[in-house]
């Protein structure tokens, strides 16, 4: 076609259409191939396959794993117990620092507010499924060297290098545990608020990870804040960067914002019911209930 630029083939098609009959219900035609009809083997000899496809389901088939009579594979080998309980272990789907940086660059995640699991799931580019025993986000090291954002981050699993990468830029990172009831609320906030049930009270971590979430070196949310500050300095020395002073940062208020150990969502207390339709929040007034949620 003479002339350059976008959309030329479209113009050609539309110009052609002007001289063609009006497109009506009687003019349409699909593009997909006809479904292949199964030619059942009929005839005197009965054919080569088994009559009709449904017969394979109906006919008496041997049980799964059956090896024709000899000892089947799955009973030959002894059971290995090293993976026992694998289906009960906690899982943390990975999310890289590179993805985080890219999403911040493209405006999908706003670094002006604290970033937690809720914000990551709201991007619709990262998903967790509490029913699959996903307990949160595992922030990985990929993209560590190009990470430049200054953020307040809350994740569920990470490594020292990642903590260093975040703190090097003047940000803060916290490791926080959320129980499955809270995760159910957090991973899909719209459905949760639409349900009209109170925001759950976050439970403490189970025994086998209580130590991790109380460890200042891993920036656990249950750790002593003074110990965490010390650990930040130590990590900066270990990795060899200058630790920026968070207290002198203009975004100080945002960077030190933390959730209460009983809190799922920033600025919303457990026990509150959100009314999406009327855009109000219902807070329990009964003292017993309030004590429960605040304890």
């Amino acid at each position: 076609m003479a002339g350059a630029g976008p959309g030329r083939s479209v113009d050609y098609a539309l110009t052609l259409l002007r001289r063609l009959p009006r497109i009506t219900l009687g003019n349409l035609k699909g593009n997909k191939e006809q479904k292949k009809k199964h030619n059942y083997s009929r005839g005197q000899d009965g054919g080569s396959d088994r009559g009709y496809p449904e017969q394979a389901k109906k006919g008496s088939q041997p049980p799964l794993g059956f090896a024709g009579g000899s000892n089947p594979y799955y009973t030959r080998h002894p059971v290995e117990w090293y993976y026992r309980g694998h289906e009960l272990r906690r899982q943390y789907p990975p999310y890289s620092l590179f993805s985080l940086q890219r999403n911040i660059d493209m405006g999908i995640i706003d670094p002006a507010y604290p970033i937690d699991l809720v914000q990551l799931c709201n991007t619709k580019l990262y998903h967790i499924d509490p029913l699959q025993r996903h307990f949160g986000v595992n922030l990985t090291e990929e993209g560590m060297h190009m990470f430049k954002a200054k953020i307040n981050l809350e994740v569920q699993w990470t490594t020292e290098s990642v903590i260093a990468a975040v703190e090097r830029n003047g940000g803060t990172i916290t490791l926080a545990y959320f129980d499955p009831a809270c995760l159910n609320a957090m991973h899909d906030t719209r459905s949760f608020f639409a349900r009209g049930v109170p925001i759950p009270r976050r439970a403490l971590p189970p025994e086998n990870c209580l130590e991790l979430y109380s460890n200042p070196k891993m920036r656990g949310y249950l750790a002593d804040p003074a110990a965490v500050s010390l650990a930040r300095v130590e990590l900066a020395q270990k990795f060899g960067y200058n630790l920026p002073d968070v207290t002198k940062d203009p975004d100080y208020e945002m960077l030190i914002k933390r959730k209460d150990p009983r809190q799922c969502f920033y600025d919303l207390e457990p026990g509150w019911v959100v009314n999406l339709k009327d855009r109000t929040i219902l807070k329990p007034a009964d003292e017993v209930i309030r004590q429960y949620y605040r304890s």
Binding site: Y113, N122, K124, T189, F193, V274, R279, T280, L282, A285
Partner: peptide, 19 residues
């Protein structure tokens, strides 16, 4: 159970709903 209804904190909910 008695409740207190308020619209003050709803702006925090908007941030949680995503786009």
């Amino acid at each position: 159970t008695p409740v207190v209804e308020s619209a003050d904190e709803f702006r925090f909910v908007d941030r949680l709903l995503g786009r």
